[in-house]
Design a protein around this nucleic acid. Structure first.
Length: 290
DNA sequence: CGGATTGTTCTTCC
DNA sequence: CGGAAGAACAATCC
Protein backbone atom coordinates (compact mmCIF):
# COMPACT_ATOMS: atom_id res chain seq x y z
CA UNK A 1 0.00 0.00 0.00
CA UNK A 2 2.68 2.52 0.71
CA UNK A 3 2.04 5.75 -1.15
CA UNK A 4 4.01 8.97 -0.86
CA UNK A 5 3.11 9.76 2.79
CA UNK A 6 4.03 6.27 3.98
CA UNK A 7 7.30 6.31 2.04
CA UNK A 8 8.10 9.78 3.41
CA UNK A 9 7.44 8.47 6.93
CA UNK A 10 9.82 5.58 6.39
CA UNK A 11 12.53 7.85 4.96
CA UNK A 12 12.33 10.29 7.88
CA UNK A 13 12.62 7.47 10.38
CA UNK A 14 15.46 5.67 8.65
CA UNK A 15 17.48 8.85 8.14
CA UNK A 16 18.87 9.40 11.67
CA UNK A 17 19.53 5.68 12.04
CA UNK A 18 21.46 4.95 8.85
CA UNK A 19 23.14 8.17 7.66
CA UNK A 20 26.83 8.03 8.43
CA UNK A 21 26.88 4.27 8.85
CA UNK A 22 29.21 2.04 6.87
CA UNK A 23 28.09 -1.19 5.23
CA UNK A 24 29.93 -4.20 6.55
CA UNK A 25 27.97 -6.87 4.67
CA UNK A 26 24.79 -7.09 2.63
CA UNK A 27 23.01 -10.43 2.72
CA UNK A 28 20.67 -11.44 -0.06
CA UNK A 29 17.93 -13.85 1.00
CA UNK A 30 15.91 -13.64 -2.22
CA UNK A 31 17.61 -12.98 -5.56
CA UNK A 32 14.60 -11.30 -7.15
CA UNK A 33 14.63 -8.57 -4.50
CA UNK A 34 18.11 -7.40 -5.57
CA UNK A 35 17.28 -7.66 -9.28
CA UNK A 36 19.32 -10.88 -9.60
CA UNK A 37 22.51 -8.86 -9.04
CA UNK A 38 25.27 -11.38 -8.29
CA UNK A 39 27.56 -8.64 -7.05
CA UNK A 40 25.01 -6.80 -4.89
CA UNK A 41 26.84 -7.45 -1.64
CA UNK A 42 30.30 -6.90 -3.07
CA UNK A 43 29.31 -3.54 -4.53
CA UNK A 44 27.82 -2.28 -1.26
CA UNK A 45 30.60 -3.45 1.00
CA UNK A 46 32.52 -0.66 2.72
CA UNK A 47 30.28 2.15 1.46
CA UNK A 48 29.26 4.88 3.89
CA UNK A 49 25.72 6.23 3.62
CA UNK A 50 25.52 9.97 3.01
CA UNK A 51 21.85 10.60 2.25
CA UNK A 52 18.44 8.99 2.09
CA UNK A 53 15.76 10.69 0.05
CA UNK A 54 12.65 9.95 -1.96
CA UNK A 55 11.12 10.68 -5.35
CA UNK A 56 7.45 9.77 -5.44
CA UNK A 57 7.31 6.36 -3.81
CA UNK A 58 10.92 5.50 -4.67
CA UNK A 59 13.54 5.53 -1.89
CA UNK A 60 17.09 6.57 -2.81
CA UNK A 61 20.09 5.88 -0.59
CA UNK A 62 23.38 7.46 -1.68
CA UNK A 63 26.93 7.11 -0.44
CA UNK A 64 29.74 9.46 0.53
CA UNK A 65 32.44 7.05 -0.55
CA UNK A 66 31.20 6.30 -4.07
CA UNK A 67 29.00 8.92 -5.66
CA UNK A 68 28.24 6.81 -8.72
CA UNK A 69 26.27 4.15 -6.86
CA UNK A 70 22.78 4.43 -5.38
CA UNK A 71 20.54 1.95 -3.61
CA UNK A 72 17.00 2.23 -4.95
CA UNK A 73 14.13 0.71 -3.03
CA UNK A 74 10.54 0.40 -4.08
CA UNK A 75 8.27 -1.01 -1.39
CA UNK A 76 5.48 -1.77 -3.91
CA UNK A 77 2.66 -3.45 -1.96
CA UNK A 78 4.25 -5.14 1.04
CA UNK A 79 7.87 -3.98 1.34
CA UNK A 80 8.96 -2.94 4.83
CA UNK A 81 12.17 -1.85 6.53
CA UNK A 82 13.07 -2.84 10.06
CA UNK A 83 15.93 -1.56 12.16
CA UNK A 84 17.73 -3.90 14.49
CA UNK A 85 20.26 -2.76 17.07
CA UNK A 86 23.60 -4.39 17.77
CA UNK A 87 21.96 -6.71 20.30
CA UNK A 88 19.67 -8.00 17.55
CA UNK A 89 16.58 -6.40 19.11
CA UNK A 90 14.07 -4.86 16.73
CA UNK A 91 14.25 -1.16 17.54
CA UNK A 92 11.06 -0.16 19.29
CA UNK A 93 9.65 -3.68 19.07
CA UNK A 94 6.27 -3.60 17.40
CA UNK A 95 4.31 -5.57 14.93
CA UNK A 96 3.70 -6.00 11.23
CA UNK A 97 0.93 -7.39 9.08
CA UNK A 98 1.34 -10.60 11.02
CA UNK A 99 1.30 -9.52 14.61
CA UNK A 100 4.23 -11.42 16.03
CA UNK A 101 6.56 -12.38 13.24
CA UNK A 102 9.28 -9.76 13.59
CA UNK A 103 10.31 -10.73 17.09
CA UNK A 104 13.41 -12.15 15.54
CA UNK A 105 14.86 -11.21 12.19
CA UNK A 106 15.48 -12.46 9.60
CA UNK A 107 12.12 -14.21 9.31
CA UNK A 108 10.42 -15.90 6.37
CA UNK A 109 9.61 -12.57 4.71
CA UNK A 110 13.10 -11.08 5.04
CA UNK A 111 14.59 -10.66 1.56
CA UNK A 112 17.77 -8.69 2.17
CA UNK A 113 19.60 -7.16 5.09
CA UNK A 114 22.56 -4.90 5.61
CA UNK A 115 24.88 -5.27 8.58
CA UNK A 116 26.66 -2.04 9.44
CA UNK A 117 30.14 -1.76 10.90
CA UNK A 118 28.65 -1.10 14.36
CA UNK A 119 26.74 -4.40 14.09
CA UNK A 120 23.32 -2.78 13.78
CA UNK A 121 21.21 -4.03 10.88
CA UNK A 122 18.68 -2.83 8.35
CA UNK A 123 16.21 -5.47 7.18
CA UNK A 124 14.10 -5.37 4.05
CA UNK A 125 11.03 -7.60 4.38
CA UNK A 126 8.58 -8.14 1.56
CA UNK A 127 5.88 -10.79 1.70
CA UNK A 128 4.71 -10.62 -1.88
CA UNK A 129 8.08 -10.07 -3.54
CA UNK A 130 6.99 -7.16 -5.73
CA UNK A 131 9.41 -4.73 -4.10
CA UNK A 132 13.11 -4.39 -4.77
CA UNK A 133 16.37 -3.00 -3.44
CA UNK A 134 18.71 -2.54 -6.36
CA UNK A 135 21.91 -0.71 -7.18
CA UNK A 136 22.04 1.82 -10.00
CA UNK A 137 24.57 4.31 -11.37
CA UNK A 138 24.01 8.07 -11.20
CA UNK A 139 23.16 8.06 -14.88
CA UNK A 140 20.53 5.34 -14.45
CA UNK A 141 19.14 7.16 -11.42
CA UNK A 142 18.72 10.41 -13.38
CA UNK A 143 16.90 8.69 -16.19
CA UNK A 144 14.56 6.98 -13.71
CA UNK A 145 13.82 10.24 -11.87
CA UNK A 146 12.99 12.16 -15.04
CA UNK A 147 10.07 9.81 -15.62
CA UNK A 148 8.33 11.09 -12.51
CA UNK A 149 5.91 13.98 -12.64
CA UNK A 150 5.85 16.74 -10.00
CA UNK A 151 4.61 16.04 -6.49
CA UNK A 152 1.43 17.78 -5.32
CA UNK A 153 3.03 18.29 -1.89
CA UNK A 154 5.89 20.29 -3.37
CA UNK A 155 5.98 23.94 -2.23
CA UNK A 156 6.37 24.98 -5.88
CA UNK A 157 3.61 22.77 -7.24
CA UNK A 158 1.48 25.83 -8.00
CA UNK A 159 4.04 26.90 -10.58
CA UNK A 160 3.44 23.75 -12.63
CA UNK A 161 -0.20 23.00 -11.87
CA UNK A 162 -1.40 24.56 -15.15
CA UNK A 163 0.90 22.37 -17.20
CA UNK A 164 -0.17 19.26 -15.29
CA UNK A 165 -3.85 20.12 -15.70
CA UNK A 166 -3.34 20.61 -19.42
CA UNK A 167 -1.77 17.17 -19.70
CA UNK A 168 -4.67 15.57 -17.83
CA UNK A 169 -7.34 17.45 -19.80
CA UNK A 170 -6.01 15.87 -23.02
CA UNK A 171 -6.48 12.34 -21.77
CA UNK A 172 -9.45 10.10 -22.49
CA UNK A 173 -8.97 7.79 -19.52
CA UNK A 174 -10.78 8.09 -16.22
CA UNK A 175 -9.54 10.82 -13.90
CA UNK A 176 -8.59 8.15 -11.37
CA UNK A 177 -6.29 6.39 -13.83
CA UNK A 178 -4.63 9.70 -14.74
CA UNK A 179 -4.00 10.59 -11.09
CA UNK A 180 -2.46 7.17 -10.47
CA UNK A 181 -0.04 7.69 -13.38
CA UNK A 182 3.26 8.56 -11.69
CA UNK A 183 4.56 10.32 -14.80
CA UNK A 184 1.75 12.87 -14.54
CA UNK A 185 1.90 13.49 -10.81
CA UNK A 186 4.06 11.52 -8.40
CA UNK A 187 3.01 10.08 -5.09
CA UNK A 188 -0.69 9.36 -5.25
CA UNK A 189 -1.86 5.77 -4.98
CA UNK A 190 -5.21 4.07 -4.66
CA UNK A 191 -6.05 5.46 -1.21
CA UNK A 192 -5.16 9.13 -1.65
CA UNK A 193 -6.64 9.29 -5.14
CA UNK A 194 -10.02 8.20 -3.77
CA UNK A 195 -9.68 10.71 -0.93
CA UNK A 196 -8.67 13.60 -3.21
CA UNK A 197 -11.53 12.88 -5.63
CA UNK A 198 -13.98 12.88 -2.74
CA UNK A 199 -12.79 16.28 -1.52
CA UNK A 200 -12.94 17.66 -5.07
CA UNK A 201 -16.46 16.19 -5.45
CA UNK A 202 -15.51 14.37 -8.66
CA UNK A 203 -16.50 10.81 -9.54
CA UNK A 204 -13.49 8.56 -10.12
CA UNK A 205 -15.13 7.31 -13.33
CA UNK A 206 -15.25 10.74 -15.00
CA UNK A 207 -13.21 11.03 -18.18
CA UNK A 208 -10.36 13.56 -18.04
CA UNK A 209 -11.46 15.40 -21.16
CA UNK A 210 -14.94 16.03 -19.71
CA UNK A 211 -13.63 17.84 -16.63
CA UNK A 212 -13.03 21.58 -16.38
CA UNK A 213 -9.57 22.97 -15.66
CA UNK A 214 -10.97 24.20 -12.36
CA UNK A 215 -12.00 20.67 -11.39
CA UNK A 216 -8.68 19.17 -12.43
CA UNK A 217 -6.69 21.76 -10.49
CA UNK A 218 -8.97 21.25 -7.52
CA UNK A 219 -8.37 17.51 -7.32
CA UNK A 220 -4.61 18.04 -7.77
CA UNK A 221 -4.55 20.50 -4.87
CA UNK A 222 -6.59 18.17 -2.70
CA UNK A 223 -4.09 15.44 -3.54
CA UNK A 224 -1.43 17.63 -1.93
CA UNK A 225 -3.66 18.37 1.06
CA UNK A 226 -4.47 14.74 1.87
CA UNK A 227 -0.86 13.62 1.47
CA UNK A 228 0.47 16.48 3.62
CA UNK A 229 -2.11 15.81 6.32
CA UNK A 230 -1.21 12.14 6.26
CA UNK A 231 2.54 12.79 6.55
CA UNK A 232 1.83 14.82 9.69
CA UNK A 233 0.40 11.74 11.43
CA UNK A 234 2.75 9.11 10.04
CA UNK A 235 0.78 7.82 7.06
CA UNK A 236 -2.11 5.40 6.69
CA UNK A 237 -2.23 1.89 8.04
CA UNK A 238 -4.11 -0.51 5.84
CA UNK A 239 -3.29 -4.20 5.99
CA UNK A 240 0.47 -4.12 5.74
CA UNK A 241 1.90 -0.69 6.31
CA UNK A 242 3.81 -0.02 9.48
CA UNK A 243 6.61 2.44 10.03
CA UNK A 244 10.14 1.19 10.68
CA UNK A 245 9.42 0.91 14.39
CA UNK A 246 6.51 -1.42 13.61
CA UNK A 247 3.86 1.11 14.54
CA UNK A 248 0.84 1.88 12.38
CA UNK A 249 0.19 5.34 10.93
CA UNK A 250 -2.72 7.37 12.20
CA UNK A 251 -4.27 8.71 9.01
CA UNK A 252 -6.49 5.62 8.79
CA UNK A 253 -9.03 7.23 11.11
CA UNK A 254 -9.18 10.33 8.91
CA UNK A 255 -10.06 8.48 5.70
CA UNK A 256 -13.32 9.79 4.26
CA UNK A 257 -14.14 7.20 1.60
CA UNK A 258 -11.35 4.65 1.24
CA UNK A 259 -12.28 1.31 2.80
CA UNK A 260 -15.59 2.80 3.95
CA UNK A 261 -17.95 1.12 1.50
CA UNK A 262 -21.37 0.59 3.02
CA UNK A 263 -20.74 3.27 5.63
CA UNK A 264 -22.25 6.75 5.78
CA UNK A 265 -20.69 9.63 3.86
CA UNK A 266 -19.11 12.04 6.35
CA UNK A 267 -20.83 14.94 4.54
CA UNK A 268 -24.31 13.73 3.59
CA UNK A 269 -24.77 10.27 5.16
CA UNK A 270 -25.36 8.63 1.77
CA UNK A 271 -23.94 5.10 1.68
CA UNK A 272 -20.39 5.04 0.30
CA UNK A 273 -20.16 2.94 -2.82
CA UNK A 274 -17.37 0.64 -3.89
CA UNK A 275 -16.77 -0.28 -7.52
CA UNK A 276 -13.95 -1.79 -9.52
CA UNK A 277 -12.16 0.67 -11.76
CA UNK A 278 -9.10 -0.26 -13.79
CA UNK A 279 -8.81 -3.38 -11.67
CA UNK A 280 -8.67 -1.35 -8.45
CA UNK A 281 -11.11 -1.06 -5.61
CA UNK A 282 -12.60 2.42 -5.88
CA UNK A 283 -14.66 4.22 -3.25
CA UNK A 284 -16.88 7.27 -3.62
CA UNK A 285 -20.03 9.00 -2.44
CA UNK A 286 -22.71 8.74 -5.15
CA UNK A 287 -24.34 11.92 -3.85
CA UNK A 288 -21.38 14.25 -3.21
CA UNK A 289 -19.28 13.21 -6.19
CA UNK A 290 -20.70 14.10 -9.60
C1' DC B 1 -12.50 -22.36 -2.63
C1' DG B 2 -13.22 -18.07 -5.13
C1' DG B 3 -12.18 -13.47 -4.83
C1' DA B 4 -9.94 -9.75 -3.04
C1' DT B 5 -5.49 -6.96 -1.86
C1' DT B 6 -2.19 -1.19 -1.46
C1' DG B 7 2.08 -0.52 -7.23
C1' DT B 8 4.32 -0.87 -11.41
C1' DT B 9 5.46 -2.80 -15.86
C1' DC B 10 4.66 -5.45 -19.75
C1' DT B 11 1.65 -7.04 -23.45
C1' DT B 12 -2.07 -6.61 -26.44
C1' DC B 13 -5.20 -4.24 -29.06
C1' DC B 14 -6.68 -0.56 -31.87
C1' DC C 1 4.13 5.05 -33.05
C1' DG C 2 1.19 5.86 -29.19
C1' DG C 3 -2.63 5.68 -26.07
C1' DA C 4 -5.71 2.79 -23.45
C1' DA C 5 -6.96 -1.33 -21.15
C1' DG C 6 -5.96 -5.44 -19.00
C1' DA C 7 -2.84 -8.99 -17.44
C1' DA C 8 0.93 -10.29 -14.78
C1' DC C 9 3.88 -10.39 -10.82
C1' DA C 10 3.22 -13.61 -5.53
C1' DA C 11 1.44 -14.61 -1.21
C1' DT C 12 -1.63 -14.17 1.63
C1' DC C 13 -6.39 -13.14 4.01
C1' DC C 14 -11.45 -13.47 4.28
Amino acid sequence: MPELPEVETVVRQLRPFIVGKTVNTATTLHKKTVNYDKYFSRRLQGLTISTISRVGKLIIISFATNKNIHLLTHLKMTGQFFLVDKNNAVVGGGHTYRANDIKSLPNQHSRMYITFSDNSKLFFNDMRLFGYTKLVSSEELSSIITKYGPEPINAHFNEVIEAVAKKIKKKKTTIKAALLDQSIVAGLGNIYVDEALFLAKIRPTKRCNTLTYLQIKSVLRFGGVVMNDSIKVGGTTFQSFNDVYGKPGNYTEQLRVFDRSGMECVNCKTTIKKIKLGGRGTHYCPNCQK
